[in-house]
Write a protein that binds this DNA or RNA. Structure first.
Lengths: 338, 338
DNA sequence: TCAGCGCAAGACATCGTTCTCAAGCTCGTA
DNA sequence: TACGAGCTTGAGAACGATGTCTTGCGCTGA
């Protein structure tokens, strides 16, 4: 069974077709200045002729880079799936890298098996850099990356800032975001606040709540804090349950815009008007925020920009830059629901 | 600024440390039979001593493989994120590959930028195989993969089965699943059925609905078909709206187990008993199905097995196997909600 | 004693690029 | 005419592993 596998054309074939040496062909294709326009043109024509694309394996060995950046996801994918914010963050990364020749790939490492395989490929230097989307303290993989000196960017603050000297960090200040939202409530004169947040073990949720509390104090009692999922329906369900309790409240702080959308639906169904009776503030500045009636006042976490930043830092570190830490700032987006 | 970068140990260093040639060192580490136990031991000790791990780039060039398999996601990540089934499928893939030395990476290719970058890396042969999670007809990337003869596995049926001769295909029969669920309703004697499905443009949703209809006909009127998200809260909200309509129904077919869980909560709150008054059937056999009260009768799509299958086929194709098509079968899981 | 065998290990080529170095060519100037 | 400067180009080494061929060695048996 002889496969008719037409093996990919190599640089040598291009060189032969153009009547030059491999070195010259390489230079011509890489736009080296030390080459005449004439041969450059000829080589390129030949390359196009035979459909030449430089082989990643040969190239990687020669230049010492694979041009692949791993986006490491250590939490179970399903959790990542349920958190809508990630996709925009990831878009930010790919957007930024699309300008370069680097390719981001998502590397799942939640099971032990997966972590071992990942570790192995880190050791083999299969990737030029790693962006850890959800780093946690004491992660074995981080330990490995540190030892191997693989350029690494952590997205999110690590408690006690370990590794600050070896890894770069990018995060946006969730507590600040919480303060912004709470402050808006306070300035509006709202005194009895309810919070419908995401999952309780989510670190962003914890930080935002701290921000709420710093501003509102007793105006946000423990009993009024509800943890749920991130979606529309979750907000709807949670608000239903709050209404069933028949407590008095005049403001709802939401963990996501989708939650807020569900909350508003439930409030309207109960005959309550937003913002006349109740003020609602979301989080994320998801596109649903503008489609809500009334349009949603929300806190914008610069996810896409965070992605850009992480990608850029990774590229810089590949070029040898020192690790840095950058904090992105939240922003209150004023609309009509307050 | 001289970086104190302790460059990774190479095979030559191991060889030197063990007092043998590079070839011998290579053989010792790769468990070649043509090597004495004594030197094998010595070389391995030396390798451990200097923390040697074979460099992926050199190895890839020599063996002609990168040992990386791309899991291609052509739809926007956010869609993938909102569909809980993917994570189990992906787990299936990684599980299977964890036995081999291959590493799966997720490759997002929804924007044009991303597709171009992906295309480039396909051409450069950065990956040994590709598993396309959501293939669609006329995809430019599939065209590229076909031309390059990159081993490719499609997960999901392509209309008209193009590329059947070059690509392998794995899919599970959603229409069959729909029939199983509907048949169970019918045998239970339910006549007025409501369907709470996932997003309307999801192909699996379309196929399942076709299966429902094939069995139920007029017992599932158009007006009783509701499209929503995949989550708990979505089912809850949808069922609330159905109850508000005050139509008569005695069975609910759900697009996912999480939807079903929300549906059951809403029914109970409305004073309806499952399964005495209303029968509910889910989809996916998610772990939530057993935690429901009553435990959920559901349709199991062998997602994990599909992942195993896709990974195995990919490995086989890398070794030169011909493309194949395999259909996975659905299964009705009988519990107490019917 | 020496041909012949089997085994372990070394020498060298190979994979497909890039990069360094040196050589060839043209041209202008002394 | 000759020589150095400035281009362009080719030969060959590198990158770090694997695979093939060959050699060296000890042993057996005629």
């Amino acid at each position: 069974m002889t496969q008719p596998v037409r093996t990919a054309p190599t640089l040598a074939e291009v060189a032969a077709a153009a009547g030059v040496s491999r070195s010259t062909a390489s230079r011509a294709l890489n736009d080296s200045p030390r080459i005449s326009e004439e041969t450059k043109r000829r080589v390129r024509a030949a390359a196009k002729e035979v459909n030449f694309v430089p082989n990643a394996r040969g190239r990687a060995l020669a230049v010492g880079r694979t041009e692949i950046i791993a986006v490491l996801v250590t939490e179970p994918l399903s959790e990542l799936f349920s958190d809508p914010t990630y996709s925009e963050f990831l878009s930010g990364i790919t957007e930024e890298l699309s300008e370069s020749s680097y390719l981001p790939v998502i590397l799942q490492a939640s099971s032990t098996h997966e972590r071992n395989r990942a570790r192995e490929h880190f050791e083999r230097r299969s990737f030029d850099a790693v962006i850890d989307v959800s780093p946690y303290k004491g992660s074995e993989l981080l330990e490995v990356l540190r030892e191997l000196r693989v350029p690494t960017v952590l997205c999110g603050q690590l408690e006690g800032h370990p590794y600050r000297d070896v890894f770069s960090t990018v995060y946006s200040d969730d507590e600040e975001g919480g303060r912004f939202a709470a402050l808006a409530m306070k300035e509006r004169g709202r005194k009895d606040i309810v919070a419908v947040l995401g999952p309780q073990d989510n670190p962003a949720v914890v930080d935002r709540l701290r921000g709420y509390r710093a501003v509102l104090g007793e105006d946000l009692p423990d009993a009024n804090v509800i943890y749920t999922g991130w979606n529309n329906g979750d907000g709807y369900q949670a608000m239903h349950q709050i209404l069933a309790r028949e407590i008095a409240f005049d403001g709802v702080l939401c963990g996501s815009d989708r939650i807020a959308a569900g909350v508003i639906t439930a409030l309207n169904e109960a005959g309550l008007s937003v913002p006349a009776d109740i003020s609602v503030v979301g989080f994320d500045d998801h596109e649903i925020a503008t489609r809500c009636v009334p349009a949603l006042t929300t806190v914008r976490q610069p996810l896409r920009e965070e992605g850009h930043m992480a990608a850029n830092i990774a590229l810089d570190m590949i070029k040898g830059a020192e690790p840095t830490t950058s904090v992105m700032h939240m922003q209150l987006i004023q609309r009509d629901s307050l």
